[in-house]
Nucleic acid binder design. Sequence first.
DNA 1: AGTGGGCCCTGTGCGC
DNA 2: TGCGCACAGGGCCCAC
Length: 229
Amino acid sequence: GKFVVFDLDGGDALVVSLRMTGKLLYGVDDVDERHVRGQILFDDGTALRFSDTRKFGRMAIVDAAALERRTALRRPKMPLHSSLGQEPLARGFTVAWLRALIGRRPRVAIKVLLLDQRAIAGIGNIYAIEALWRARIHPLRRAGSLRADEIERLHEAIRWALRKGIRLGGASRRDYVDARGNEGRMQREFQVYGRAGEPCPRCGRPIVRTVVGGRGTFHCPRCQRAPRL
DNA sequence: AGTGGGCCCTGTGCGC
DNA sequence: TGCGCACAGGGCCCAC
């Protein structure tokens, strides 16, 4: 999740993948210089700085037209930043589109599919978890096992989770701040993420932590029924 | 095709 | 207080 795309003069685009601890900072006074990995200096003397404690973040200049190109040439081999999937908040992200995606990847665990940036761009671990809780779908369900009504709920839940995150300025669990250095408020509104043992906001059953796709995962064992494996 | 582990890095929080 | 371990808004590569 968390790609930032700058359209540049001349048809190129600067793509930034923030990964775990990347931050773009502009007009922030108290920047910890130890973690600044690069900066863009402007003619007016201001600077956009890229701070990234864990050094996982990446930047690349790509052909902007390549970013727009849908479906064609989206090979697993090519660099991720030039093969991003559908934008979940764009018009093209419809229930029919999601159904078609699931039709192409029926055997993958639904949470793994949500986190696949070549399929859908920009859903991170927190938002996948929150969306699946909202849609009442277990993270390990095979994508192809979802019924039509479940796909509709998931479609709505993805947009709900992402819009909420944007409206609240992001989730500042420990590192994240926006370009002005301000923390977000999404972390206060987590329904299940990071809440193992606490009651489900919907039914009261204790939230369970598991690992899916190598990432910490939270779900309600009553609202999100486990598939038979 | 899909999954699981290691790895890339640095920092924090917890149990002992 | 100090140490060691697990874990963290992500993704790549490899073996199975």
